[in-house]
Amino acid sequence: MFTFTLPELLQQLANGLTIGCLYALVAIGYTMVYGILRLINFAHCDIFMMSMYFCYYFITVFSLPWPVALVLVVAATALLGVVIEKAAYRPLREAPRISLLISAIGVSYLLENLATVLFSGVPRSFPAVGNMQEMVEIGEVRVARLAIYAPIMMVVLLVALLYLINKTKTGMAMRAASKDFETARLMGINVNKTISVTFLVGSALAAVGAVIWGQKYPQIQPYVGVMPGLKCFIAAVIGGIGNIKGAVVGALMLGVLEILLVWRFSALSGYKDAFAFIILIAILIFKPTGLFGETFVDKV
């Protein structure tokens, strides 16, 4: 099992990294929403799914040029995230957290069934965007262009996101609101607006993830978001939910480990998804706060 060539290893790492970057883009959305609302946004995976349908409609059905379509997809998905927050979570701001969680599960089912009614359960094929599916050879490694674009896209978006959070006033408001709504309000921060921005950013990133995901797995149906959604949630937990860098590291780890597992133990490849859950269970048992989880103790 330990006999392989270097190009083989690089090939597999490239695949793992691509998947990891996709997971990261979606995992950030989970972790950001958790950070500010302490809510696992179960609807996030269905926002991802809707985003794939938006892409299908804008490119395949309306035949828009793909750059225009992508802008519209990201905008529509971001809007969907904001609307969901306003309609399903904001009215429950003062309610117990469990109500919020149940509302999130409700939105998830609503979107899945809405998609079944609107777009039917027949799988659609995802349109090719640009030349992302074209194969290129680097030395002896053959990968789709996607494997090059995905990490670049992820790094650029991550840097932009970290800049937004750490260096801008909006980011400062987000960090303050994630600690203490009431004191944030006393600083003159409009907490509702800040939460909307969080959903906007998280959903927009999920849209980018969805488009790239569709290049790798070009099939859309109303439940397409469920498994990637769970994986990304696991990635966020591995990294320490609430921590953005943690979510990215968790996602890359999960992506690479999954691919390596399937590669070296091909007999076990059917258990690829189970493997992710085993990691989740292990993390919850041995390091429940995740790799980069908060351990800050508040002074009373």
Binding site: E182, T183, L186, G188, I189, D298, K299
Partner: peptide, 30 residues
């Protein structure tokens, strides 16, 4: 708060993982 009233809350409620300077800056958010 934008109209010039502010409250120093009971129990201080500083933002624990922001630095002292960041806490001051956030006080000037408006």
């Amino acid at each position: 708060v934008r109209r010039g009233i502010t409250l120093v809350p009971e129990g201080r409620r500083v933002f624990p993982d922001l630095t002292v300077l960041e806490n001051l800056k956030i006080g000037a958010y408006t």
